[in-house]
Amino acid sequence: MAEVLVLIEHSEGSVKKVSLELLAMAAGIGEPSAVFVGPGADAALATLGDHGAKTVYVADGQAFLDHVVVPTVDVLVKLVSEKSPAAVLIPSSADGKEVAGRLAVAIDSGVITDAVAVSSDVVATQNVFGGATIVHSKVSKGTPVITVRTNSIAPVQSGGTANRVDVAVEVSAAASATKVVNRVSVQKSGRPDLSEAAIVVSGGRGVGSDEGFASVIEPLADSLGAAVGASRAATDAGWYPHQFQVGQTGKTVSPQLYVANGISGAIQHRAGMQTSKTVVVVNKDIDAPIFDLADFGVVGDLHSVVPDLTARVNARK
């Protein structure tokens, strides 16, 4: 059975959920092999094996800290030429898409982005135009390079163990052309990761202030164990950090439940949340387009409805 390479997304060895989802998807196509670049492979090995990876290719070194995107591409180019995999699956993050694009150029293969499913014969399903159209497509030249959205498939624990294979990396000229001189982190919240969360509670201009996010939106999110999201109006106003923006130019989320509070539902916002399985809306304007997406909507003031809801959810615990 041909190998299927899965690029693992992780933060210092703590493997992101999307990586485990991609291993489950790879198992439907061929034999899943994880590709782990950067520091922390030791901590990840057991988890990856347990989720179906038969082999974990490990490439570590300063290159992955010093340069962006290209060192990862160099590793994948090498593995594709050595292993002739049936496909390469990559998380649909900003970095992941760029890795996929450069890999496709380097190996002269087709690339498909934002797949939500990939069949055994490597046909990818995409939801395009904000989810209004379902497209099936196939790579017709070379090794299929496919980026896959988070929450597209459930991870599967197989109880297996993975075989570690170290891959040597040379730093190419293309890789060393850029140099990371500083990494700046915004504070971590302790809430679930926005792109992976099963529930997202979002706030928009209707929230009114940063104080509103702290006293109304975050408490509801915490009562539901949810991640917090925001519209661009809210991030531009400085009420919530940009990293939490949902939409065209923010994160694309596809949670089980999306709660939109004081968000009108502009096309650019919908582009990032339209494929949420269930949508609940609180907005005081009955004509707000976001109600078109609502499974359940309340026309009302979020400043009274949301705290009441938070108290009710907490009371059930």
């Binding site: 690339v111 017709s140 026309v299």
Partner: peptide, 23 residues
């Protein structure tokens, strides 16, 4: 000569209209 091809596509069935109430 594209490196990938669309095999087929379909409109996604419209989502059933949800319930909207006034607070």
């Amino acid at each position: 000569n594209a490196w990938s091809e669309v095999k087929d596509f379909a409109e996604r069935p419209a989502k059933a209209k949800g319930t909207v109430i006034t607070d």
